[in-house]
Amino acid sequence: MAKLGNTEAEALLRAYFKEEYEHERVMSRETPPKAWPASLGRATAQAGDTARKARRVELFAACAIIALSLSPALFDAGAAPLARKAAALYSHGAGERLLESLIAGSAEIVQSYSKSNASALMRAP
């Protein structure tokens, strides 16, 4: 065999690795991913976070509406931040789920919102 120079040595290495890469390329086609890779699960988790946030917004709206329904005075005041936010949420369609939530059990919803707010709401006349 001929004496090996730098160029030939590089050529040998390139040929070897090219073949290895071809091997992996064929295997890649033959072995598709079994499952969505783990880190893409994080995207799903993030979507879950978004859903939880939306749920919290709905719960907040539920609490606000309960407060309003229990306290006409608060509703009449109108300037209360709670009332303003609840009205805004309701106008953006949070009401549908809100009604379902109310049916499911308003006390539970209020408790899950926050203890302090719930107690404040429950004290409302």
């Binding site: 040929a15 090219k18 073949e19 290895e20 071809e22 091997h23 064929v26």
Partner: peptide, 9 residues
């Protein structure tokens, strides 16, 4: 075994 795929290989 590395498959022999390419003409070069």
């Amino acid at each position: 075994p590395t498959r022999q795929l390419s003409a070069e290989g």
